[in-house]
Design a protein around this nucleic acid. Structure first.
Length: 132
DNA sequence: CTCCTGACTCAGC
DNA sequence: GGCTGAGCCAGGA
């Protein structure tokens, strides 16, 4: 990550879809929506998604959202979401500890020591890619 | 309603 | 330069 701390000038206003009829909606939906837009062969971090959603101080929420991701439909490519170091911190939450790595390899991403190789190069920042 | 937890991150020591 | 603590917010008990 480029660590553009001073960047991200705009505060993205979540539509929060507090639709009184759709109880299905939740903070997770926004996370899923972003994750599903991650291009094949790319990865992003919890913090990046959190920042995009306007809750960058709560990357935990993103990670936690992913906990429900693999139960969501359509399936969310949660393997493309790693922590700021590019480490597969969430691999343990998959069916098997190696599944996340396998999925990433299918995407053409090389994983070494539970870390995405060339993470910064493959990094996909929703704040940049999806801004506007 | 209050308390606890969590796939993270940053700041301090 | 690695380890620890605190902050973050949403949801489940």
């Amino acid at each position: 990550m480029k660590k553009n701390k001073a960047t991200i000038p705009k505060k993205i206003t979540l539509k929060k879809a507090t639709t009184p009829g759709v109880k299905e909606y939740s903070f997770f939906e926004d996370v899923f929506a972003v994750v599903r837009q991650i291009p094949k062969g790319r990865v992003t971090s919890y913090g990046a998604i959190a920042a995009y959603l306007g809750t960058k101080l709560s990357a935990r929420m993103v990670g936690w959202a992913m906990n429900a991701a693999h139960t969501a439909t359509p399936k969310v490519p949660a393997q493309r979401v790693v922590n700021r170091n590019g480490m597969l911190s969430g691999r343990h939450h998959f069916s098997t500890p190696t599944m996340m790595e396998e999925l990433l390899k299918k995407d053409g991403i090389t994983v070494k020591d539970n870390t995405v190789v060339d993470f910064q190069i493959r990094f996909w920042d929703p704040v940049i890619e999806l801004e506007l």
